[in-house]
């Protein structure tokens, strides 16, 4: 990896050192954003990283938010060809834009759709060759739409995520999800959000600046990396905080005030 493409975000996620073995292996990454500041660029960045040519990672992308063409164009500008990766069986795209589970009250459980989805993911992973089965990322964009797809029964979504979490222990997959923090901020008990944050090994928050948006600072990222169970500083969580600017081909990260 050349010097330029490593940045604060990669450092915070431990992606700057090695790409093989995949540093996020077996971990759950939760990205939270707001109406003012979209966090989807973190997803794109992670997707690009996991599909980087010197690794053998496989990504399973579950899209509730955008069609394939959208991601394809973005990733192409980031220097990653999704069509090619799809042909190479390193990228699996599940278009869930139209997925709508029937209402939960009448007989058919809304779980049906999600269970089927889980089955598909499981089958996809099992069908992979032994080597790449160890380096799978499951990426979900985004959870709030998944909730809508099951008509608001967030318990089913949580169940689904716990199933996926078992995959991370069974196959050492990584699970990367995007959700919107401000949806839950008004609730008394934001159960869903708290559950997600509990589930997460790495929590990434994208927030607008308190002073509003500017053309050269698009917002700030807070990366909270919970301790892995080994190493010296295991008792402490690692938090890093920096500003970012999203460009077509790269995300620039920098410490507050470090740019003139």
């Amino acid at each position: 990896m050349n010097q330029r493409s490593s940045n604060l975000l990669d450092e915070a996620l431990g992606l700057d050192q090695t790409i093989e073995p995949w540093p996020l292996r077996g971990r759950a990454v939760v990205i939270e954003d707001r109406v003012e500041t979209s966090g989807s660029f973190v997803l794109h960045h992670l997707l690009k990283r996991s599909l980087s040519p010197n690794s053998s990672n496989v990504s399973i992308f579950i899209a509730f938010a955008q069609p394939f063409s959208h991601y394809d164009r973005i990733l192409r500008k980031l220097g990653c060809n999704l069509v090619l990766q799809r042909d190479n069986s390193r990228f699996f795209f599940f278009d869930m834009l139209m997925l709508q589970c029937p209402g939960g009250h009448e007989g058919i459980t809304p779980e049906g759709g999600l269970i089927a989805l889980y089955g598909k993911i499981h089958k996809t992973i099992l069908a992979l060759p032994e080597v790449s089965r160890k380096n799978v990322s499951i990426i979900i964009d985004d959870l709030s739409l998944m909730e809508v797809a099951v008509n608001g029964s967030s318990d089913y979504v949580l169940d689904f995520l716990h199933y996926c979490r078992t995959l991370t222990s069974e196959f050492d997959c990584s699970l990367i999800t995007l959700n919107h923090e401000d949806i839950y901020s008004s609730a008394d008990r934001p159960t869903f959000l708290l559950q997600m944050e509990y589930l997460a090994d790495i929590l990434i928050k994208a927030e607008p600046l308190a002073t509003g948006l500017a053309t050269d600072v698009h917002g700030q990222l807070t990366v909270l990396s919970k301790s892995m169970n080994y190493g010296q500083e295991s008792s402490r969580n690692n938090t890093s905080n920096f500003h970012f600017k999203v460009k077509e081909n790269i995300v620039e990260c920098f410490y507050p005030g470090s740019r003139g």
Binding site: H70, V246, E248
Partner: peptide
């Protein structure tokens, strides 16, 4: 913001 990740400021 369709087909791009860059926000319009």
């Amino acid at each position: 913001r369709i087909n791009t990740q860059v926000p319009v400021i």
